[in-house]
């Protein structure tokens, strides 16, 4: 799994590429937490670009829910961008878009 991020004003863009499963989840969790912990407060829009994620299972859902629960108190609003076919299907099935809206 490859993770890159960049800031555009108050918007934090995180681009993920690879497979998100039990094997890669600890790295994804640590990377996102490291990026997010350095935020200086205030509302932040976190955009997770999943266009490069070729595989995700329920472990990935757990990672996303975990980040939501951990950072919502810090006013971090998470959005999901570019999920591909199967990843999008899993996100829809599990209702993730209700708390992390999909944006284009």
């Amino acid at each position: 799994m490859e993770i890159k991020y960049s800031f555009q004003g108050e918007e934090l863009n995180v681009v993920m590429k690879g497979e998100l499963d039990e094997c890669t989840a600890p790295y994804v969790r640590l990377s996102l937490d490291t990026i997010l912990k350095d935020l200086n407060g205030g509302d932040t829009k976190l955009v997770l670009d999943l266009g490069g994620v070729s595989f995700m299972d329920s472990t990935g859902i757990g990672v996303l829910l975990g980040r939501y629960n951990k950072f919502r108190k810090s006013n971090v609003n998470i959005y999901i961008k570019n999920p591909q076919g199967h990843v999008n299907r899993i996100l829809e099935m599990t209702g993730i878009y209700e708390i992390m809206p999909k944006i284009s």
Partner: peptide, 14 residues
């Protein structure tokens, strides 16, 4: 506590 979604069997079933 380990951030499990509990959706494993649901996805298998679906």
């Amino acid at each position: 506590q380990e951030e499990r979604s509990g959706m494993g069997f649901t996805l298998m079933e679906s």
